[in-house]
């Protein structure tokens, strides 16, 4: 580049003054050109660094210190402890139980959210417009309900003595459900919370997938139908491959949302369930970082969670890429 420029200018202009003028000008344009895209990126970069980079940096930084309330308010010396917080975490069996809980719980939430949302989206394409509008309006209501409110309402519904669900179940002859406590057993409690999570997150999947299905050219589906393909076949062999980018996005979003579930667990299981049996990572890190004022340990948990989510996302994207998806 640097060599070509003067040669090119020299050959096009015989006048002795012009190359001298055009050389710095050209060079300047190259500089400006390089600077230009940074200039355009600057607003986004500044916002990203301020809102994402700096907190992330502080999170990692804090996780390397013995950082508790006494240190924050300057009443105890601040000690750099390296990876001590991480060592404490990985040597604590409770951490592994919580991590296991989180993975199982979040996976179940993701799978059921996608299944329910996807199935209803396909179903919606076959409904009359007014029925579809009703379905969407009702589900968007669930989606719009704040997590805290939704959880509280579900708790009322599933209350062991006064709840509507138990009363109905006992009323239709299932006497085992009178005074049945949904939050007593670890897995029924997780199941209850997972149902609430699916209830309030499937509408997003449904609406997005429905929009995707609408974007599929009708000729393709019609052709398949003419060829005698059944509805499930059309879905798996025609719609799903064409919906892949959309399915990918909702899956990643669901994974991220469900790994970060906080309010539902915190409210419905009263801060992590009986003897902490329903603890998930986010509630655990809140308990460590804020309730117990162990900010260093809480930050280490935050870092682990960020890394975990990044790994899951990257692996998922890799798998898709390997199977031929253009990203």
């Amino acid at each position: 580049m640097a060599l070509q420029v003067p040669v090119a200018t020299a050959s096009t202009s015989p006048a002795p003054v012009r190359p001298a003028q055009s050389r710095p000008k050209k060079k300047g344009r190259g500089w400006a050109g390089r600077l230009e895209h940074w200039l355009y990126l600057a607003p986004a970069l500044i916002v990203l660094i301020a809102l994402l980079g700096y907190p992330l940096y502080q999170l990692i930084n804090m996780s390397l210190y013995d950082y508790r309330q006494a240190q924050v308010s300057g009443n105890a010396p601040l000690n750099f402890t390296g990876l001590e917080n991480y060592r404490i975490l990985v040597s604590d069996p409770e951490f592994w139980t919580v991590l296991g809980n989180t993975v199982i719980f979040a996976t179940a939430c993701v799978v059921f959210t996608l299944l329910v949302g996807g199935a209803l989206a396909v179903f919606a394409t076959r409904l009359r417009p007014w029925v579809r509008t009703t379905l969407f309006a009702v589900s968007l209501g669930a989606w719009a309900t704040p997590a805290v409110t939704g959880s509280a309402v579900w708790l009322f519904l599933f209350d062991s003595t006064q709840g509507l669900v138990n009363k109905v179940l006992a009323g239709i002859g299932l006497s085992g459900f009178s005074d049945f406590s949904w939050t007593y057993d670890k897995w029924t409690a997780f199941g209850l919370v997972a149902s609430e999570v699916v209830w309030c997150s499937f509408p997003f999947v449904m609406v997005t997938v429905y929009a995707g299905i609408q974007a599929i050219p009708t000729e393709v589906v019609e052709a398949a139908r003419l060829d005698g393909a059944s509805m499930p076949r059309i879905f798996t062999n025609i719609m799903l491959p064409m919906l892949r980018p959309i399915v990918m996005i909702v899956t990643i979003q669901s994974i991220i949302w469900n790994f970060k579930i906080f309010s539902q667990i915190y409210i419905m299981t009263n801060g992590g369930g009986i003897a902490g049996q329903n603890m998930v990572l986010n509630v655990y890190s809140y308990q460590q970082a804020f309730a117990a004022s162990l900010y260093g340990l809480g930050s280490a948990l935050g870092v682990i969670m960020t890394v975990l989510l990044m790994v899951i996302t990257v692996v998922y994207l890799r798998l898709l890429k390997r199977s031929g998806e253009v990203l």
Partner: peptide, 28 residues
């Protein structure tokens, strides 16, 4: 090259401005 310089500069600035998490002086 430019972006690398920028990144290094940003990291250095971060490291210089706050080596440790913030603490406050709460002396009586």
């Amino acid at each position: 090259k430019f972006s690398r310089t920028l990144a290094v500069a940003a990291l250095a600035a971060m490291a210089l401005t706050s080596c440790a998490p913030p603490t406050s002086n709460n002396a009586a």
